[in-house]
């Protein structure tokens, strides 16, 4: 077994453990490469099916291609596709840059808060109706007790402290200093009422692994990741006011793998194009403790 196959097997094992142990389970799909690989791994784990709802937090500032790509795959793969949003903050324009808040506040409103209340079922969820192809208010508002998330340990400092199965309290808070032990593929699958568990099947993957796997499995990716002739492409996808493309002429996953291997981006962080990370030291860890993915 090569290292990519080992990573795949471990992720599949984790997904199946999650599916078996959590009655109310969902998977967060940010449309980015990591969570799309995660979605593909779910199809691996469940033999072509995706038996859990996919939840997307729509900030309504996403690059429009992202939403088109989301809905195209949702229809093709018959996904149980759900989105949630912070309707009040959007209405009040408590957003960046068109409102009176900074980037981190905007992230907090449109992502952390929207995520927390969508997961808990307090705010409306919208589900794709495959008959009409439109999103309709979801009748199921039960809280999700297991949430599968595509974070990787190598992305940035705080994520390297995560477990595969990581508990969150009822305010979605993460206690970094006191995490459960986890060994021999035995995870924290028992949890007290009112709490939920974040499940991280991609923890051991690196950015390079992700692209190697996309290449091997021929996973369809958003075109934003590839240079369309302008000499620029996105390395990480997010909201358009805060995400900038990088200079690169990579047009295929193979080109990107080559780029990563030859060290074009050595010592340049993957999220370097994400402006909100730079607002304050440790900002992302603070966001994550509050429930940001």
């Amino acid at each position: 077994m090569d290292s990519l196959k080992k990573l795949e097997s471990q992720s599949v094992y984790i997904l199946r453990e999650a599916y078996r142990n959590f009655k109310s389970l969902c998977m967060l799909w940010s449309i980015g490469k990591d969570s799309t690989v995660l979605l593909w791994l779910a199809r691996k784990a469940f033999f072509g099916h995706v038996p859990v709802p996919l939840v997307h937090i729509d900030t309504h500032y996403k690059i429009p291609e992202m939403i088109a790509y989301r809905d195209r795959l949702a229809r093709e793969w018959r996904l149980n596709m759900i989105y949630g949003e912070n309707t009040a903050a959007l209405a009040k324009k408590a957003t960046f840059p068109d409102g009176a808040v900074d980037r981190l506040q905007c992230c907090k409103h449109l992502k952390s808060e929207a995520l927390r209340h969508t997961l808990s079922g307090e705010w409306p969820r919208y589900r794709m109706d495959h008959a009409s192809g439109r999103y309709e208010p979801d009748t199921d508002q039960a809280p999700y007790t297991g949430v599968i998330v595509g974070v990787r340990a190598d992305e940035e400092g705080s994520r390297s402290k995560e477990r595969y199965f990581s508990p969150r309290d009822k305010y979605s808070e993460w206690n970094v200093s006191d995490q459960p032990p986890e060994f021999w593929n035995q995870f924290k699958t028992d949890f007290a009422p009112g709490t939920h568990v974040r499940i991280h099947p991609l923890l051991d993957w690196t950015e390079l692994n992700i692209w190697e796997y996309i290449e091997r499995e021929k996973i369809p990716m958003s075109s934003l990741y590839f240079d369309q002739g302008s000499g620029k492409r996105y390395r990480s996808l997010g909201c358009y006011p805060c995400t900038a493309p990088v200079d690169s002429t990579a047009k295929t996953p193979a080109d990107i793998i080559e780029e990563l291997k030859t060290g074009k981006f050595t010592n340049i962080a993957e999220r370097a194009g994400r402006a909100q990370d730079k607002e304050d030291a440790g900002g992302l860890e603070t966001l994550r403790q509050e429930g940001y993915m």
Binding site: A153, D154, E155, E156, G157, S160, K161, L284
Partner: peptide, 17 residues
Amino acid sequence: LKDERSQGITIDAARCF
């Protein structure tokens, strides 16, 4: 290295490559 986490350097005290 720990202090650099917010700059996204891919090394952490818990795991080094």
